[in-house]
Simulated assay, not measured.
Amino acid sequence: MIVKDLRFRLVFLVDEEGILLREFLHSKGISKRTLTATKYEGGQLTVNGIEQNVRHRLQVGDEVVVIFPPEQPSEGLQPENGVLDIIYEDEALLVLNKPAGQSTIPSRDHPGGTVANLVAGKFVHDDLPATVHVVTRLDKDTSGLICIAKNRHIHHLLSEQMIASGFHRQYVAIVEGRVQEKRFTIEQPIGRKDGSIIERMVCEDGQFARTDVEVQRHFEKDGHELTTVALMLHTGRTHQIRVHLQWAGYPLAGDDLYGGTKKWIGRQALHCAILRFAHPLTGADIQFTSDLPMDMQEISRSL
């Protein structure tokens, strides 16, 4: 019986005479760490079908194949069977729609049933020798789009894209109060709140954080003014949107950790509605969207 090799691989054609294999692969975004893992952990580098080391000198027209090593699931990440709302999937990545109430990764309080557990189970089912690389993470009670890379190289490329501000994440939130400015930017550093392992706050010695805010709609609910806003993240600090909007005086509806009330919704009214980025392999611009879940729709529907 022939066993199919399911290790992730990339194929490149050389267009520069005399370049070293190491330099050529670096120009393709393959990190030194990934090359080391490829060499020592079960991967392979071939040129025109012959295995070569990174000091091999290439010629125009050579075919370079990188076979990435199989990855072992992280210890403590138990694969589980379950339903995933898959928006998009290819050899490199997954885009999922996460419901509110589901954690992204396991923790002491939520060791199972997370997105990562279910994705690990899917990889086992698909005989994919990969672990789970979460590119964009959502809080347990935030709903919407999540991107997951299928191997460390893709994760590296998308992380680099985030650093270069080429990875766009747009959220929709319902906040308490009437937001006056149509568009504005919050640039306030965020750090851990003293005495808490969970809460964050705006503080001078925190990490730089930037959130763009745009008002979509004003409305009233039970005599209270509320505002639907669209938010663009430029950084990815823990609880960034929740902390920034609390600081601005407009806490998220349902977010009692940061000054909101659960009168209309039992979780923070926050949803990741759009992911837009360049595909890490093709470079093509791709965009994914997710409609508001019913609990957020209901707040503004029953006026």
Rank of each mutant, 00 (worst) to 15 (best):
E75R: 11
V14C: 10
F24Y: 13
F288Q: 02
F167S: 01
R33I: 08
G259P: 13
I163V: 15
P69D: 06
I299Q: 00
I148Q: 00
T36L: 14
H234A: 13
E80L: 05
R169N: 06
E71W: 03
P280E: 01
N48H: 07
E51N: 12
R237Y: 06
I67W: 12
S165C: 11
Q161M: 15
R301S: 13
V95K: 02
V175R: 02
R183T: 12
S302W: 12
E176P: 09
F167K: 04
L226I: 05
L35Y: 01
V3S: 13
V83A: 12
L233Q: 03
H56C: 11
K32R: 14
S107Q: 05
T227R: 02
A273G: 10
R55Y: 13
A230V: 09
V60R: 15
D85F: 08
P106K: 01
N53I: 12
M201T: 14
D222L: 09
L275N: 01
Q268W: 00
L231F: 05
G195F: 07
A130K: 07
Q287Y: 07
G249L: 11
N53F: 12
S300Y: 11
K262F: 08
G49Q: 06
Q170V: 14
S165A: 15
H224S: 13
K28H: 12
R33A: 14
H224A: 10
T36A: 11
T34Q: 13
K39D: 04
G254W: 00
G259F: 04
V229W: 00
L226M: 07
K32D: 14
V229P: 04
E41H: 07
Y250T: 04
G177P: 11
G76H: 02
R137F: 00
Q52A: 10
R210V: 13
K193Q: 11
E220A: 09
L145D: 02
L231K: 03
A116I: 01
T38M: 11
H155N: 15
S196W: 07
M1E: 10
F12H: 08
R267P: 02
L233S: 03
V3M: 12
A164P: 12
P251N: 06
E23P: 13
L25S: 01
V60F: 01
T34R: 12
F184W: 14
A116W: 00
Q207R: 15
K98W: 00
D212C: 09
R152M: 13
N81A: 14
R7Y: 06
A248N: 11
I186S: 05
S290N: 01
V243F: 03
V119P: 03
V11K: 08
I2S: 06
L94Q: 02
I190N: 01
L94K: 06
Y171T: 09
T36Q: 15
I105R: 02
V65Q: 14
I241Y: 03
L21K: 03
M232C: 15
N117I: 01
L303V: 14
T104D: 03
V65G: 07
D62R: 04
S290K: 00
S107N: 09
N48P: 06
L77C: 09
G113P: 03
V134T: 04
R183I: 09
D141M: 03
V14S: 04
R57P: 08
D139A: 02
V54L: 15
V134I: 15
